[in-house]
């Protein structure tokens, strides 16, 4: 099995570093061979940069891929946006000789060349397909008696023609990963609906974007859960920081803890909440942390 490089992206190291720490702790505990991808940049974000200018999006994504090619390791992403950008760019550069030649002309200016000999992975599908729930279960130290609202996020699954992760309407693999930690994945209406952040909507049209988050949070609140668990820091930011932004606009205070999957997994593997940055959300997770500490 080929080793991995950890692709951090922007939002995790620079806004939710707890997710970076949780990821590092989980990978080490599961003995997954993963090294840093030194000098990587923004993926660059698919919803904005890809639609502004494809050649530059592809060149910068190509450079990130080449950094990992040099190490002969597949890229491990922990963000749906980074996964979308890098997996799509990798596929395009592998399959389209014209795009590849053009991109390599740019990359030649920095002494690099795209060769097309590695894959781009997302930690959720990697854990599910390459590690498996049985092995994860065998590492659990603290089974989590929690009701979880899972949020897949769009770009983990779609466009399905380039994801090969099965049905994007009723997927189950992320739910299985939640349940192998001892938690219950609770069904809720509009479970597969978008958080509203993607495509540059959160950055340019915040009010419109938050209407979508508000709807999603209201549905989740009805399901009476302990936390939301996601696979993407941009969804994470929208559902966490978005709660404060919604409160300022509408007065509604959802007060729902939001965790990246690696943070939930970290709890099950026995790490304390503070080591995983669960106390560093915009939303106050104090009560959730108390519940975890009583449970452990």
């Amino acid at each position: 099995m080929k080793g991995l490089t950890l692709f951090l992206g922007c939002v995790i190291p620079n806004r939710y570093p707890g997710i970076e720490m949780a990821t590092r702790l989980c990978l080490a505990k599961l003995n997954i061979d993963c090294t840093d991808l030194e000098g990587a940049s923004c993926c660059p974000a698919p919803g904005v940069f890809r639609s502004f200018d494809e050649p530059s999006w592809l060149a910068v994504a190509g450079r990130n891929i080449v950094l990992s090619e040099k190490l002969q390791r597949d890229i491990l992403t922990i963000c749906n946006g980074c996964f979308a950008s890098l997996a799509d760019a990798n596929h395009m550069l592998k399959s389209d000789p014209v795009l590849r030649e053009r991109t390599n002309e740019y990359l030649a200016k920095i002494g690099k060349e795209f060769k097309g000999n590695i894959e781009v992975r997302h930690i959720i599908e990697y854990l599910y397909r390459d590690i498996g729930t049985d092995i994860i279960r065998s590492h659990i130290e603290k089974p989590l008696k929690l009701r979880v609202a899972v949020h897949y996020g769009c770009h983990l699954l779609k466009p399905s023609k380039s994801r090969e992760l099965g049905d994007s309407n009723r997927p189950e693999f992320f739910d299985e990963l939640i349940e192998c930690l001892g938690a219950t994945s609770v069904d809720y209406p509009d479970k597969m609906e978008c958080c509203g952040a993607g495509g540059g909507v959160r950055s340019a049209l915040k009010d419109e974007s938050l209407k979508m988050a508000d709807h999603k949070l209201s549905r989740i609140k009805e399901a009476v859960i302990d936390c939301i668990v996601n696979a993407c820091p941009f969804c994470h930011m929208q559902l966490d920081a978005g709660q404060e932004e919604i409160k300022q606009r509408t007065g509604v205070d959802y007060n729902i803890p939001v965790l990246h999957y690696t943070q939930l997994m970290g709890l099950a593997l026995g790490f304390p909440p503070e080591a995983l940055g669960i106390d560093l959300n915009v939303t106050n997770n104090g009560k959730f942390i108390e519940k975890i500490e009583e449970m452990l």
Binding site: L8, A40, S41, S56, A59, V60, R63, K109
Partner: peptide
């Protein structure tokens, strides 16, 4: 600082040259 272009100035320069 993370192990990204934030930490390595020469790597950031590469991204700037590309863009």
């Amino acid at each position: 600082l993370p192990e990204t272009v934030h930490k390595y100035a020469e790597e950031l320069e590469e991204v700037k040259i590309l863009l």
